[in-house]
Amino acid sequence: MPMLAFRLATPRVLVDLRRVSGLDRIHIGEQGVELGAKVRWRDIERDTRLAVAQPLLAEAVRHIAHYQIRNRGTVGGSLAHADPAAELPAIALTCEAHIVAVGPRGEREIPAAEFFLAPLVTALEPDELIVAMRLSAWPKARRFSFKELSRRLGDFALAGAAVFFDLDERGCMRALHVGAFGVADKPVRLLETEAALNGMRPEPAAVAEAIKLGTSGLEMRSDIHADADYRRALLETLLTRAFDEAMQRSPS
């Protein structure tokens, strides 16, 4: 809508999905969680089951925009808009979510890693519509943290980080996933960081080194709110704090 108000977009047709039924379901099952495209931020915020079933998602959503926007903003809208500084695309990518789209050729599932292509550009075809996002099941003992810094509450993040991992019986990290947003032209996974630390204990020195490894290859965004140097340093700080918090937080 702001794009229309600024006369930057002048679509011939706009379709409101308000009356399309069945897209606002939150399904929580053994296999994981499915969020319908019309699920709003307030629905996630108020669904106490999600705080257990997908705590990282629940925490990330608290950072999205403001009250009035959370009353209207949806899962499908955020995924399709694909803002590089938005929280949900980052969660989708970090958690290896699948985006379910339907079109004239039927339904298909697109892995988040193949979905976000560039700022505001996705793998969605012009005749396709997002109907849901699927997240796999979350082990109860999983460690996680979500950190972002924005200029004011509700603003897009200058940088943000999402981290989760399981700890094995020896205290080593397994299934480590590290995501970042607001720093590049789309949300990113820090695969080098993950590779360097998977199977390791979260020792501060090793974590610091792995973070550097993961961020060094990133082409950092620079804009009027923050330059690339700052974003790089900020992301490293947020990641460090995210690992700390994930370790300190006792699993539910």
């Binding site: 600024f6 200029r151 004011r152 897009f156």
Partner: peptide, 28 residues
């Protein structure tokens, strides 16, 4: 802390919306 009207080298205003011109809010 917040408010800054920024221009590029061509004299184009870069902060033409409230997403870029940052006013204090209730949490600040």
């Amino acid at each position: 802390f917040l408010e800054h009207l920024q221009y590029d080298e061509n004299g184009q205003l870069l902060t033409g919306s409230l997403a870029d011109y940052l006013l204090p809010t209730a949490t600040d």
